[in-house]
Nucleic acid binder design. Structure first.
Lengths: 212, 212
DNA sequence: TGTGGCGGCGAACATTCGTTCGACGAGGCT
DNA sequence: AGCCTCGTCGAACGAATGTTCGCCGCCACA
């Protein structure tokens, strides 16, 4: 007996939409009204069935303690990543000096945790320009970076160029006593500088292309 | 008086973590215990303050009717996009013939609504191969498609090639009485075929690169 | 020194809510 | 017919929960 009765499916559907709308689960009597059921005990009865079948989990001794199980109901773990600004071959960007993002008016990007590899303190930047287009990072993309102070060869990092006073996203190569910052765009030349002049700000994690 | 007292900040923080963990809001007494407050009325008092300051919204006559306001607390609208399989220059994929995704065991990808342009019935495919790499779609990427039966020149579409019995992601060009399916990879040749032989399955919306 | 607002306290109260109980009808089975 | 299960119903009980009320200490301020 794995099938859901019509009423059980109704309740499950109501559960979803109620939670979606209100952000908290319905009470038994909410379900009763919402599904046009005449008695609370019927709701309770079917809720138990639903629980037996593994569709929901109920928290007894807690009102509204209903949780939808399964991929469909599980709330994906979302992180709001602060979108700190833009990065290019140009404009300097503000970089967090602490882990406090107290300013709630900051723009954020909401993504699933897996997009930022479950790392903490990740921040996002909007890419301006096409210097990394061959690494599949295009103008307008949003990149996620984790704070980092160092890089190994080949890492894509946001680096602060002290002499220019600007931050740029490039592939990092340590070559003897100099540093090569390699764009992933064959029409652009690498930047050569000294280790003293560069300060790694963050390491590339992933990117999204929010607009087509 | 816009500042939050220490206790109010505590409560707000507790609210966040409680909801994050349990998926439903705490009761007054949950807050009382969780924040080490000695009376429910103190909780009520500060909850009112919080409401005055616009941090939360309370649903009176509903237990646990607390909702966190603002970007930090607002639940981002998430859609679970069914990940139907892979697409490449090769394997056929199952394509939905109806709008029912009844099979809950299907793998899904959770993304924010803006990733799919708030469209309905979007589905996702994992890209195999590098035929679209110059369009910044690489091997392993996940692409989001909307169901479509037609395409205009230049659209990136998933097309069903009847004679080959396979589905592939290409740029679509109608040229006279033939159709050119153009890979975005200069090492690959376009596919020429007839309009009768191609059946557009979906139009490219956006892509993510879940792993580095 | 008195006054009033603020934040807190504990207890009682009123409502909401989950659960239980007895009963009923429709079917299936012996 | 007798007996069982399933799904339903209405009512009531009791636990969980939100709200109110009087009282208190602190502190700024007149």
């Amino acid at each position: 007996m794995k099938e859901l009765s019509g009423k059980q499916a109704d309740i499950l559907e109501f559960l979803r939409s109620f939670i979606e709308e209100k952000d908290y689960p319905p009470s038994i009597r909410d379900i009763q009204e919402g599904c046009g059921i005449s008695s609370t005990s019927v709701v309770d009865y079917n809720l138990r069935k639903l629980e037996e079948k593994g569709c929901i989990r109920r928290d007894r001794e807690v009102s509204r303690g209903i949780e939808i199980l399964g991929a469909r109901g599980r709330r994906p773990r979302i992180v709001e990543v602060p979108l700190l600004g833009s990065i290019a071959a140009g404009q300097p960007i503000p970089v967090p000096t602490s882990d406090r993002w107290a300013n709630d008016s900051d723009e954020t990007v909401a993504v699933t945790e897996e997009m930022v590899r479950h790392k903490a303190n990740v921040f996002a930047l909007r890419v301006k320009g096409t210097s990394m287009v061959e690494d599949l990072i295009d103008d307008g993309d949003i990149v996620f970076l984790e704070p980092a102070q160092s890089a190994v060869n080949g890492d894509r990092v946001a680096v602060w160029l002290k002499d220019r006073g600007e931050v740029t996203l490039k592939r990092f190569f340590h070559e003897g006593d100099r540093v090569r910052l390699q764009p992933a765009n064959s029409t652009m030349d690498p930047i050569y500088t000294t280790p003293e002049n560069v300060e790694v700000q963050g390491r590339f994690i992933s990117s999204i292309r929010p607009s087509d």
